[in-house]
Design a protein around this nucleic acid. Structure first.
Lengths: 244, 244
DNA sequence: AAATAGTATTCTGCATGCAATATGTCGACA
DNA sequence: TGTCGACATATTGCATGCAGAATACTATTT
């Protein structure tokens, strides 16, 4: 990366690169991000790097500790169920609002975004899948025309991107990418019909589908068929140590 | 402000000062915040000031525009009803969670925070009222033990501080500070009793009490008894201009 | 071999400075 | 009086550098 940046663009361009690498887990959760390293890598001073880290910190993708630098935010698996709970609440509420307030132009836009998602799936473009899925759901938040709800929903969607990436990786490893196909038409139907109850239901099911699939992906990554008990005769007798 | 800051503390200390001034409307919404000015004021270089502005921007209290600097975030009155809608949702949900998951230590803490609020009201300490009210409600979010919900609720509480300040100003102007007394015991009762439904109801009522009071404050500030129609004979006849 | 102390190196918080961009002021002209 | 252009001034994005804090490495002691 020896690109020369036009004045005023360094920060945002570098931010996009690093954000992408975090979202695709190229830079792993917990990995240190130090200013000097990144400064050398992008051939800029530390000033824009500090700006980038600050922005990504505000997005929750980076954690900074005073005098200790920054790390990629760990994925907080112990709070996954809390995450799902919050996502369910926001996704249901946002989708309800979208069903209430959508316009014809909104529907056109949603369809375009859904098509972009399908194209990314077709192309097996992992980052494109992450991005277009995010864009689709974020648009639902905006269609509801409550910027506060949209912002909260957007924050959770942003956080979900790395989780979704783990899920996609699982599907790829098990040749199950077909499960990625068409995730969005139920949303569009309910929103188009301005059916608030159906929208709520679709959102709820979508959340828990995501929940179930992610747990399956975790199980796959963690599944270890090592048996704590071994067949008889394979473990030599070792005398038990006596304390003292 | 000619204080010399211990290394590592400048940014956070200056951030607290500016945050306070924004929350108490000493620096008005929309006011420009330029690095050079603040740098001179606090007798530090622009580096920590840039850091401060970045942090306050992440908090929503400051808006930055590339190459144009920063302003204090305007108060978005046209979205007040959306704000109330979102606050209602989060406050209800967070209070429900608090009722479900509270511990005895949580209750002790809540009572301490409620007492701090009452003391601030007694002292007519405007900033203390803002801060202790914020602390009390933020604690409710934490007691619910879902960090995502707590974060969203916290963001809205943070945003409400300036609105609450306008309301307090109104009460002071109309000698109605008594209305600030005891805002929190209903919350504590419902949470103590682990009565999720009561908690939900208390939260809901509290939100719309805030809604009503804020609107009254706005009306007071905007109320203009100028009558568009004047008494007969007071307005001289002015011939109507004819276009052309 | 493990623990501790000393030293070297690296990284961060912040200062200073430069060039580009934005804003303000003034004079000329219609 | 209003508009436009030129010039001056102020501010921002970013580079460079210094000093303190943190980490890594080495030598010494137990």
């Amino acid at each position: 990366m020896a690109t020369k940046f036009q004045r005023g663009t360094a920060t945002s361009e570098i931010c996009q690169v690093i954000r992408r690498e975090i979202l695709t887990l190229e830079i792993e959760p917990g990995a240190p991000l130090d200013e000097t390293n990144l400064s050398n890598r992008f051939n800029v001073s530390r000033s824009p790097i500090r700006e980038v880290l600050s922005r990504l910190s505000a997005e929750g993708l980076v954690e900074t500790v005073p005098n200790r630098g920054a790390i990629v935010a760990p994925i907080d698996l112990k709070n996954f169920s809390n995450f799902i709970e919050a996502l369910d609440l926001q996704q249901r509420y946002a989708t309800r609002l979208a069903a209430r307030f959508r316009t014809a132009a909104d529907l056109i836009r949603l369809r375009e975004l859904a098509a972009a998602y399908s194209a990314a799936v077709q192309d097996r473009d992992r980052f494109g899948i992450l991005q277009s899925n995010y864009d689709f759901h974020k648009a639902i938040g905006e269609i509801g025309r409550n910027p506060y709800v949209a912002r909260h929903y957007g924050q959770l969607l942003s956080e979900a991107r790395r989780l979704l990436h783990i899920h996609i990786r699982f599907l790829e490893a098990t040749q199950s990418e077909d499960k990625l196909a068409d995730q969005h038409s139920d949303f569009i139907d309910a929103i188009e019909a301005q059916d608030v109850t159906a929208a709520d239901q679709v959102a709820h099911e979508h959340t828990f589908q995501f929940h179930d699939r992610f747990l399956k992906a975790l199980r796959y990554e963690a599944d270890d068929e090592f048996s704590i008990e071994v067949a008889a005769g394979q473990l030599p007798r070792i005398p038990r140590k006596v304390a003292g």
